[in-house]
Design a protein around this nucleic acid. Structure first.
Lengths: 110, 110
DNA sequence: TTGTTATATTGCAATATTACGATAAAGAAA
DNA sequence: TTTCTTTATCGTAATATTGCAATATAACAA
């Protein structure tokens, strides 16, 4: 079919997957890294930095916003972006649980 | 178009995005969590646990393997799966860098 | 050998994503 | 007002992903 069967998974699993999915594109990683590399919140010079059209950059920004990874506040005629630390911390802690859980298993089968 | 312009991004960015992408599906999150919930490496009872056909589960497993998130070793007529801790740690540390970098910025613009 | 079980692969249809040109919307500057 | 600048959205084409039935492969059992 093509549509993923989200209904069969837990809300947690769906939400976790959605954040990871939003991070799963090199352009969006580049956007995040560029926002972080600025010493202040960035006000939309992303189009100059990325090899993508303005429309495409805007679309990637929307996806990051939808996943709560970045926030944008209107500032005059531009928009000011910054990272939503909470979301990053949230998935970091999920990974920590995975690592912990994996370390508890002392079967050397793989 | 539709293909992502990987050539324009760094190898690091592409690799990071690929791991996140592999984690970006609820079925694959469920697979990881099920593998971790077992006290030993799991030997392929995933099809019974997931609401997906054997073919689909196998495909998801391949994607997790390609991204180095899980490992599978043949054991008799079955396959034994476990998590590749290193890869999880690798992306955890990327997120840590993001968080650190974000915390250094004390502009309260967002 | 044949049969059974476990996993992988192939082929295909349905759906989603990616990218961009064109256009819209909204504030700033003239 | 008009024009410019900045960002968002629409429409569309190219490509990728998801899911499954059918089939293949591989190891064991009889």
């Amino acid at each position: 079919m093509g549509a993923s069967k989200s209904d069969f998974f837990t809300q947690q699993q769906n939400q976790t997957a959605e954040i990871f999915k939003a991070l799963g594109h090199p352009a969006r990683i580049a956007i995040i890294e560029h926002i972080l590399s600025m010493n202040s919140c960035i006000c939309g010079d992303l189009v100059d930095v990325l090899p993508l059209s303005q429309a495409t950059v805007s679309q990637h920004l929307r996806e990051l916003k939808n996943a709560n990874i970045i926030q944008g506040t209107i500032e005059g005629k531009g928009v000011c972006y910054c990272i939503n630390e909470e979301t990053i911390k949230q998935i970091k802690s999920i990974l920590e649980i995975y690592i912990e859980s994996s370390e508890k298993k002392n079967t050397g089968c793989c």
